[in-house]
Amino acid sequence: VTLFVALYDYEARTEDDLSFHKGEKFQILNSSEGDWWEARSLTTGETGYIPSNYAAPV
């Protein structure tokens, strides 16, 4: 399992994006889409796309 942590807060701009807060942890589901990764929040259980430059490996 690849775990990442949010470096900044992010507010979803589309219904496919995932809103999150700094410090929140994610499981990365798909990182082959370039700058946007499909991720599941370990806090909320929700799935959506996150900007890859807002996350770092745990």
Rank of each mutant, 00 (worst) to 15 (best):
S41D: 04
I28N: 00
L7P: 02
T14G: 15
S32M: 13
L42R: 00
Y10M: 02
D16I: 13
Y10R: 04
G23S: 02
D35T: 09
G34I: 10
N30F: 08
P57Q: 08
S32I: 12
N53Y: 12
E33D: 15
E46W: 08
G34R: 12
E33S: 14
T47M: 09
I50P: 01
A39G: 05
Y54M: 10
G45S: 05
N53W: 15
L18M: 14
E11T: 13
G48D: 01
G34A: 13
T47E: 08
A39Y: 02
Y49F: 13
Y8K: 07
T14M: 10
R13S: 11
S19F: 03
L7C: 09
P51Q: 05
P51F: 06
G45H: 06
Y8H: 08
E15R: 10
L3Y: 13
T14R: 14
S31I: 13
A55T: 12
W37H: 03
T44P: 00
A39P: 00
D9N: 08
W36N: 05
S19D: 04
A6P: 00
I50W: 00
Y8A: 08
S19L: 02
G34P: 14
L3I: 15
Y10W: 10
L3H: 10
S41H: 08
G23Q: 02
Y10G: 00
T43E: 15
R40C: 08
G34H: 11
W36A: 05
N30W: 08
N30H: 08
S32F: 10
E33N: 15
L29C: 10
Y10Q: 01
W36Y: 12
A55E: 02
I28G: 00
V5T: 06
N53A: 14
N53V: 09
E38V: 15
S52R: 11
A12N: 05
A12C: 06
S31Q: 14
S41G: 03
T14A: 12
Y10I: 02
A55I: 15
L7K: 06
Y49M: 15
E11C: 12
R40A: 06
F20H: 01
L3W: 11
L18Q: 01
S32C: 12
K22I: 09
K22N: 03
A6V: 04
G45Y: 06
K22C: 08
S52E: 04
G23H: 04
N53K: 13
A56N: 06
S32K: 11
T2W: 13
K25P: 06
E11L: 10
K25M: 15
H21P: 06
Y54D: 02
L29R: 04
F26P: 00
A6Y: 01
I50R: 01
S19R: 04
A56Y: 09
Y8L: 08
Y54F: 11
Q27N: 07
A12I: 01
Y54W: 07
E38D: 05
L7D: 02
K25L: 15
Y54N: 04
A12Q: 06
A55D: 02
K22R: 10
T14K: 14
Y8S: 06
Q27L: 15
T14N: 14
G45V: 02
G23W: 04
